[in-house]
């Protein structure tokens, strides 16, 4: 049942975008957005719709950081690693978040709650250091404020 729904989501993403010039990224974005990942078993549908090989679709998915073939955690925390944030204590934020969650970048907590990812600039350099939690960017964070934000996530207050 769930598989069918997944398949339908993939098919509707294809249908909605197939007519566009360079439809590949719009299709992948919509699937990633709707399902939280791009199921490998449905790559063939995208390939057929765009008249390319499965290898080509896989090549595109694996090239871009935005696309994943397995689901992420319920929440995604991105910590900016780029220079402006580094200049304002970003490395300490990075270390504090990793310690708090007990995971490294590109990992998900055992309970499946939180995935931690690095990000290279959120364009928020006027308010460094910055982190992004799900769709919200937080500027001028401190190790304390980030820990509080994570506590809020875990207790459902976010």
């Amino acid at each position: 049942m769930i598989a069918n729904t997944k398949h339908q989501t993939v098919l509707s993403a294809i249908e909605a975008n197939q007519h566009l010039e360079g439809a590949m990224l719009p299709i992948l974005h919509q699937i990633q957005h709707d399902l939280g990942h791009i199921p490998s078993e449905h790559v063939i549908d995208i390939a057929q719709a765009l008249n390319v090989s499965r290898a080509e679709v896989h090549g595109v998915i694996s090239f871009y950081h935005s696309f994943t073939t397995s689901p992420k955690g319920k929440h995604v925390i991105e910590v900016c690693r780029a220079e402006s944030c580094q200049a304002k204590g970003g490395r300490a934020i990075e270390a504090a978040v990793k310690a708090k969650l007990g995971i490294d970048f590109e990992q998900t907590t055992d309970d499946g709650e939180i995935t931690l990812e690095p990000v290279y600039c959120l364009g928020n350099c006027g308010c460094s250091p910055a982190v992004k939690i799900n769709s919200d960017v937080y500027g001028r964070v401190t190790t304390d404020s980030v820990e509080n934000l994570i506590d809020g996530l875990l207790t459902g207050q976010h």
């Binding site: 780029a82 402006s84 290279y120 600039c121 364009g123 350099c125 006027g126």
Partner: peptide, 11 residues
């Protein structure tokens, strides 16, 4: 695609 760290003028 303003990816340069330390820049935000496009945004």
């Amino acid at each position: 695609d303003e990816g340069d760290s330390g820049t935000f003028a496009d945004r």
